[in-house]
Write a protein that binds this DNA or RNA. Structure first.
Lengths: 346, 346
DNA sequence: CTGAAAGCGCTTACAG
DNA sequence: CTGAAAGCGCTTACAG
């Protein structure tokens, strides 16, 4: 339409410098270190910037300054709503510090890990937040080799020498058992997550530890395999229904499985919590809209993301952390609702 | 630890060139246009690349080539799980074409729009996918002014001259009414979304059109205000409960509101679907785990994302689209479950 | 407090 | 098919 206006070309720093009657160095300083300039000079430059509508080219700036102000967030599965809130916390903290968010979705496979290493290796980001519980690896190298600052959030990475932020999974699982036991339950079951998942391992360990603390023989308890999906909860329900001395207290490693379990046992005529009490984990929004509403542990998802991002920002700001990398473990409060109650008598 | 190895410094293109005994131009071509090289030369270069572990610096490449292989996705609220699947579809399509994903979260406000314009203006991305239903605007300029290719997905932007991919919202809403009417319902209600939302407008229009098609006077129908939240559904339920001639068929503009409505009316002793039938919209996973399971319209979320991304990739590849920008509208199938049934007699 | 100049690491006409 | 060289648009010692 208006091709004739001539100044279609994006403004460069030299254009601003010329208009303000200063060098490009001064324009650069006005934008990145305004304190170094005389007020009058600064004002002149900023006016020129404004009138010309100048925005620095990020590629040039990154190339020269050797940083991109971008952070890579590695997500195991972007379609999992659990991470939506975590991402929000990350985004809030990062954007407050001027960093942008690059999403690396693994889509539940490891095939994409080399690609993510490439993103880091090619200097596209200043740091990495891992939500996937492992350091991405390629054919011949690990993301650790790039020397880029990293933090792990949600899923801890055992043995990693960088900061981590997770939940008190084991403690919560112990509490789950103690809570059910306090209600009189002695025949307990655990609906497990995928075996290689660190959250599953911690929650299972807590479940077993809780049994021990209550003096319940492990062989009296059932463990139903699962994978964090609704379907796994429904499968566990079938096993539950066909077992002779049914458990009366069930702790599921996440809410989806608890909800799948709830639906299936009730469809079979089992009353919750009269016949069986069910406890979930995560505290997803829907836990309060199933029937009966689900007793669960509310993970501080947003806070997990925020604190993880804060640790990364700290690392990026070059605060030489001589101390060991922190491993923050946030508490996970129990939210009692209607899916749990006293154990049936007899 | 192993600081003495000397080659800690990231490899540059010159290192590869030297090792392979060619110019940097040849290395560059090996990586971006291998067909231009003699097979022997190409092999030599690639071997050098491999042995040295070379990855091109993206900032330098972007600065010189004037493109970043990055796409900005503007999300109205990253904490909303609805977008998780849409993002997955986008990610699948983009990554298949070598593009990365930069997330711009508006967090339900307009305050961040200028910042997103800055991202585009500064050349950080090659294109933009808008999920937020409007073109971001700053104090003095719109994102449109940057000339960067854009597409709108999910929420249509009226009057926009770029490609769009949405759902057949109005058609689905018409069908919702027809479906309820076919079940014998004549007293209908609509739980609305936020007034300024384009999806709300389309669904409401469809609801009203459906009434007309069924010969039902608009004044016989109720419209409960809402904002797509559970809470809005619960509020609508209160209005419903206190109304004299209660509607027997309720269509909510999304599943969350339908679920909130379900929960509240049942808590008040109303039976669903015996006393009232409820239809939702979106087809979120949880719709199949509430009680009763929710009849709803399943949005093709992933496909929406995928097709939107495909249109952007097409635009970025410079396929001169002389024709008008396409506006794709995907069908939204009705999923009948247990929350709907015949109208009560009398 | 400000400027001249080098240089970040690539790609790409241009030439042969 | 390959190379020499310019240049993308910034930032930053260095000097004054």
């Amino acid at each position: 339409m208006d091709d004739e206006t001539g100044d279609r070309r994006t403004a460069r720093i030299a254009d601003v410098a010329q208009l303000a009657g200063v060098s490009t160095a001064t324009v650069s300083r006005a934008l990145t270190a305004p304190g170094q300039l005389r007020a009058a000079t600064l004002a002149r430059v900023m006016e020129a910037v404004r009138s010309i509508g100048y925005t620095p080219n990020v590629a040039a700036r990154s190339l020269r300054a050797r940083r991109t102000m971008l952070v890579l967030v590695v997500v195991p599965d972007i379609a999992n709503p659990f991470f939506a809130d975590v991402l929000r916390g990350i985004d809030e903290e990062l954007s407050a510090h001027g960093y942008g968010l690059l999403i690396g979705n693994l889509a539940r496979t490891r095939k994409k890990e080399p690609q993510l290493i490439g993103i880091v290796q090619s200097g596209q980001v200043d740091g990495v937040i891992l939500l996937n519980g492992r350091v991405p690896e390629g054919l011949d190298r690990s993301m650790s080799d790039t020397g880029t600052p990293m933090v792990a959030v949600c899923e801890a990475i055992p043995g990693a020498n960088f900061p981590q932020v997770g939940a008190q999974n084991r403690e919560a699982a112990i509490e789950a058992v103690a809570y059910l036991v306090a209600l009189g339950h002695r025949r307990l079951a655990y609906v497990a997550g995928p075996k290689d998942n660190v959250l599953e391992r911690e929650r299972r360990a807590g479940f077993l530890q809780g049994l021990r603390a209550a003096g319940i023989d492990r062989r009296q308890a059932s463990i139903y395999p699962g994978d964090f999906t609704f379907a796994a909860g429904e499968t566990a329900a079938q096993t539950f229904l066909s077992s002779p001395g049914r458990p009366t207290g069930v702790f599921a490693a996440n809410d989806e499985m608890a909800i799948g379990f709830l639906k299936s046992v009730r469809a079979a005529g089992v009353s919750v919590p009269r016949d069986v009490s069910v406890v979930g984990f995560d505290g997803i929004a829907f836990a309060d809209y199933v029937e009966p509403t689900l007793t669960t542990f509310r993970q501080p998802r947003r806070e997990l993301g925020r604190q993880g991002a804060a640790l990364l920002v700290e690392a990026l700001s070059g605060a030489a952390t001589a101390t060991d990398a922190p491993h923050i473990r946030l508490p996970v409060p129990l939210v009692v609702r209607d899916s749990t109650g006293p154990a049936p008598v007899g």
